[in-house]
């Protein structure tokens, strides 16, 4: 399945964003996933957990907004703690 590749792209985007905020620690990333995006949400959640575990991003909460009849696959926001 391709969820691991998607999870990797999310992590990459998180790292790009935290580089713009020196000293801040990411606490939560928000995604929008459409019903028709071809993504298994639980599989994506699992892949992100695996990629984050025991890294400097651990723990990183995941907030997935599921959009019925949508095709979205977006990284919506990142929450940072100072």
């Amino acid at each position: 399945m391709h969820e691991m590749g998607i999870a990797s792209e999310v992590i990459e985007a998180v790292r790009v964003e935290i580089a713009r905020h020196p000293g801040a620690r990411p606490s939560k990333v928000g995604l929008r996933v459409g019903e028709w995006a071809g993504v298994d949400v639980e599989s994506l959640r699992f892949c992100l957990e695996v990629l984050v575990k025991d890294t400097d991003l651990d723990p990183l909460a995941l907030d997935i907004e599921f959009r019925p009849q949508g095709s979205e696959l977006d990284i919506a926001y990142l929450e940072l703690e100072e």
Binding site: I6, E9, V10, A13, E17, H21, A24, S27, L31, L73, D74, I75, A76, Y77, L78, E79, L80, E81, E82
Partner: peptide, 14 residues
């Protein structure tokens, strides 16, 4: 806590 909007499509390179 600060919320930063990213609004980036995953698979945007594809």
């Amino acid at each position: 806590m600060e919320r930063v909007a990213i609004e980036k499509k995953v698979l945007s390179e594809n």
